[in-house]
């Protein structure tokens, strides 16, 4: 038992392991990272969301790959030599991985821009693709640019009035476009508050606009026509904002250009 644990710990540490060739990702956000970083032929499976064009712009890159349902047991048969999970707290999955001596790398959702860089680096390292990772981080920093003095108040607005926290990674990203996210309690803004305290910029994320969603229909409420002329609404692709990973940097660059 002790020996098995020691062996697992050794595998987890990731040292002295050859570049994996059967990599599985169980989460949309790790899907995006591996699709950007992995060498051809390294991937064995991504989650079904990673293959869905409604969820990520990288979906075409996963063409031909088997998809999984996000659960470890659905990929065991593929005999993976590296599994990525996205902030998984599923104890049974971890126990199963330990029992099967699977190498699992967990990539938690970023809480800051530094976390985004760290996630890129850790995935790249696990894949044995440090150079590609460094290049992606450099590209990410270039797109993001240096944070200008943020002057305009803003709301990053999703379906149903969901919005970002005032000091979370979303707010940090917006600052690079010159925007200050308003402080809204509970990450949820009501139309009344939106009208009473309108920000200067509304960054409205559009997500699965072809499908019914009560959340998306909230964004079409007629009362929003009464927003003052000083409030500018910019509609953006909602997909990169789901994970707030490397794909969000070009969006920030585009936002910044639009606002200048």
């Amino acid at each position: 038992m002790m020996r098995a644990l020691a062996a697992a710990a050794l595998m987890w540490s990731g040292t002295a392991v050859a570049a994996p060739t059967r990599v599985v990702s169980l989460n949309l956000c790790t899907d995006e990272l591996v699709l950007l970083l992995a060498a051809p032929g390294q991937l064995a499976s991504v989650s079904f969301l990673g293959a869905d064009g409604n969820e990520t712009a990288l979906a075409p890159r996963s063409r031909g790959l088997p998809t999984n349902n996000g659960r470890l047991d659905s990929v065991v048969a593929l005999a993976p030599d590296l599994v990525f999970t996205g902030g998984s707290s599923d104890r049974y999955a971890h126990e199963l991985a330990a029992r099967l001596k699977l190498r699992v790398v967990d990539v938690p959702p970023p809480q800051s821009i530094a976390d985004i860089r760290r996630n890129i680096a850790s995935v790249a390292a696990a894949l044995g693709r440090d150079a590609t990772g460094a290049a992606l981080i450099a590209q990410f920093d270039a797109d993001l640019g240096s944070a200008p003095i943020a002057t305009r108040s803003a709301l990053l607005l999703g379906g149903g009035g969901t919005t970002a926290g005032a000091d979370g990674v979303g707010a940090q990203l917006l600052r690079h476009a010159g925007l200050v996210q308003q402080d809204v309690p509970a990450g949820q803004v009501s139309l009344e508050r939106l009208l009473a305290e309108p920000p200067q910029v509304i960054v409205q994320t559009q997500y699965r606009s072809s499908q019914t969603s009560l959340g998306q229909s909230w964004l079409q409420h007629p009362a929003l026509k009464a927003l003052p002329a000083t409030t500018r609404t910019i509609t953006v692709d909602g997909r990169p904002w789901t994970c707030m990973g490397p794909l969000v940097a070009p969006e920030i660059a585009r936002l910044r250009a639009q606002l200048q």
């Binding site: 309108p198 009464a226 003052p228």
Partner: peptide, 11 residues
């Protein structure tokens, strides 16, 4: 205008 929208369109 915003006050009217809140009253008529929301409340």
């Amino acid at each position: 205008e915003a006050a009217r929208a809140i009253l008529i369109e929301l409340r």
